[in-house]
Amino acid sequence: MVQTDNITFHYKKRERTFNFPNIALKEQENLLILGKSGIGKTTLLHLLAGLLKPVSGMVVIDGVPINLLSHSQLDKFRGQNIGLVFQKSHAVRSLNVFENLQARLFFSRKSINNTAIDALLEQLDLNDYKKNKVNELSEGQLQRLNIALSVIHTPQVILADEPTSNLDDENCKIVIELLIKQAKRTNANLIVITHDHRIKSSFSNSITL
């Protein structure tokens, strides 16, 4: 469950203030946030993830007002309850696919369940690459690994920032279906922030910034 209440953010260097609309998502509800470049989409996602603190307003996830948490509490909360998917796929380069997922669980302070990791890799068709280093994966495989990293710890919310912008239509469809499927499997809210209107039909709930 995600709820925001009149959040605003101000960039001192750019002298720019963003006011964001309120969000109220119930359990397993998904949301598509559409907007042009520079409108503050990524800022909103970072506020929802607790990577930025709002100047005013409140972000509540699963009943916890995250902008009132201390740094260490926020680290812990983020690790356990939030999954992030980025436009450009990333994972720790010195670790292989399997180790990346183990590290994700380790930092989430959740028990490392190798069977669950294997099952997820199977679902995302990455089982054959689990011993591969990140730089040995194709862009598509890396994006699937990114999705795996965002759901392996069964978060409350999955936040995706432009997950399909660099993909062709076919891969765009595959990725968004995977995200929706994994969010449903883990009972998480999925919030996708994008300017990509191709995925609008996949969401019943959307707002435009």
Binding site: D75, R78, G79, A91, R93, F107
Partner: peptide, 15 residues
């Protein structure tokens, strides 16, 4: 590896 380290922070790693 700034991005790697930032990524680990999003995983829940503390400073």
């Amino acid at each position: 590896r700034a991005f790697d380290l930032a990524l680990l922070r999003t995983y829940g790693a503390s400073n």
